[in-house]
Design a protein around this nucleic acid. Structure first.
Lengths: 199, 199
DNA sequence: CGATAAACGGACCGCGCGGTCAACTTGTAC
DNA sequence: GTACAAGTTGACCGCGCGGTCCGTTTATCG
């Protein structure tokens, strides 16, 4: 019935090349990198892109799905760490490190049009909430900060660092450090605004 | 010789309407709001836009120039405040408050193509450096943070808050609070990465 | 080998963008 | 009121984008 023969060898090769090229291109130029450029970088024709991914959004979704999956895996591994505060910091480090992409903002975007991405995203969100709750309970996090806050703040270090012209590609670590100091309970000042609705 | 008669009344009216409409449109849709939409919003034809601003970039530059000017003025006023730490916080509040635009990132962009914007931007940067230096000397800021750091981080609260769907338009205040706690000297952990080259 | 379907490639399409222009309208000065 | 320059307008242009399509190539299998 649904007997589908395995795909051709060159097809799987091209698909992998496309995903890699697209990831690089999106990381360098942002989400508006053109499909033609991606095809050229992968060494295939433009039509081949659309054979594998019916829409540019589908290509983005494939990459996002991959990244978000890695993130969830890493987060789940860190859930049982002895030091929940360090675990959260490490999770945020992994999140920012992912191919030092300009930002993870397209995550929110892509999820709105693709159900699979939305599902993976929500799973990742749950993992973050969990890590945050553990860190807070453990006294490693200020009490007035929520998982949603951290989800939103996650992208900030990369975003900020991307506007420094000649800086080290690891500059985001600096701003993650500052951000994380702001999340610690020591010397936390009351926040003037309530947390946003949960994500 | 360069005797230029004053512009017509409707021209100055349209110019003002255009600037206002463009500011709104850019605030809502980001920098890729179309010129046609801006013209429609201002109630004028598309050609009129280009009569007043030869290029879309010139229109952006006019707005940015205005905002950056306000910011510099506010910063200069705050330079003599009794409490340099509070002054810096107030400056960052004003910066984020500016029409709650999605981000100030286009500032960096616009400066690369327009000399006047670059000049105003640099002046504003100097003001920030000054405010930061005073706050640091006063013990209100961690010692390992530079003016350039603050310039880069300035945009973060707005950026982060813009990704919360149904949240309060003042949500940025919350993230500015967290960020500023990360900038305080109390309980600051050493940063893993050196500061970026000065802006 | 062929035979065949899967995969490929690039010319092509429609669209919306920033920007131009020539015909038209209107504020202003006398 | 009239003349004229300043201002306005929307049709129009070229371009690059995402996406389509069909003639061609090629991996696979008996």
């Amino acid at each position: 019935m649904t007997d589908t023969r395995p795909p051709r060898a060159d097809a799987v090769r091209n698909r992998a090349a496309l995903l890699s090229a697209a990831a690089d291109e999106f990381a360098e130029r942002g989400m508006d990198a053109s499909v033609a450029d991606i095809a050229r970088r992968a060494g295939v024709g433009k039509g081949t892109v659309f054979r594998h991914f019916p829409t540019k959004d589908d290509l983005i979704a494939a990459i996002v799905l991959d990244r978000v999956g890695e993130l969830t895996t890493a987060g789940d591994r860190l859930r049982d760490a002895a030091d929940p505060g360090g675990a959260l910091l490490e999770f945020l480090t992994i999140a920012a490190q992912q191919r030092q992409q300009r930002d993870l903002s397209f995550l929110h975007v892509a999820g709105d049009t693709n159900a699979a991405v939305a599902e993976a995203r929500d799973q990742m969100y749950r993992t973050v909430h969990d890590l945050v709750d553990r860190a807070r309970t453990h006294g490693a996090l200020r009490t007035d900060v929520t998982g949603t806050d951290v989800i939103l703040l996650m992208c900030a270090p990369n975003y900020v660092a991307s506007y420094a012209p000649g800086a080290s590609p690891d500059l985001w670590r600096r701003y993650l450090g500052i951000l994380f100091d702001g999340l610690r309970p020591q010397g936390a000042h009351p926040l003037p605004e309530p947390p946003p609705p949960a994500l």
